[in-house]
Amino acid sequence: MKKKIRLIVNGEEKVLTIDVQQTLLEVLREDLGLTGTKKGCNQGECGACTVLLEGKPVSSCSLLAVKADGKAVTTIEGLAKGGQLHPIQQAFNEKGAIQCGFCSPGMILVTKSLLEQNPNPTTAEIKEAIAGNICRCTGYVQIIEAIRSLVP
């Protein structure tokens, strides 16, 4: 069954006719070509598909796109503005928080949500915030350092 939905993706309105079975991840990747959002497990366990829905992190692989109808979605492609990296992206790049990079989009978006809600998190709060995002390369050490570098 098809349904028309309206998404505000990275600030731009998108009106799409989609299959009601499609997840938000599939719509972002297949229909909108936003492949920065990664499919790691497709079961809501790894966090690689994290996007922000109305500013809050969600696993886009486990959310039907119709549930996002009318809502604002931020993907990794929406962070850098005018060729300028977002400060979180810059910190991840400079602090060695990126290795294979497959978890990076999700990690960066979770960090954005964390810092918006709590601009001054403790290390324990940082660990709690990223605990739903698996990184298989870094042991999280430099990811945590990158996030801490953004805390005043």
Partner: peptide, 21 residues
């Protein structure tokens, strides 16, 4: 020297294409 990785920006912005992309 600890220069940033040359693929860091592509990976941080989601521009980096993996085979599945």
């Amino acid at each position: 020297k600890s220069v940033p990785r040359i693929d860091g920006v592509a990976k941080a912005t989601g521009r980096a294409k993996y085979t599945g992309d």
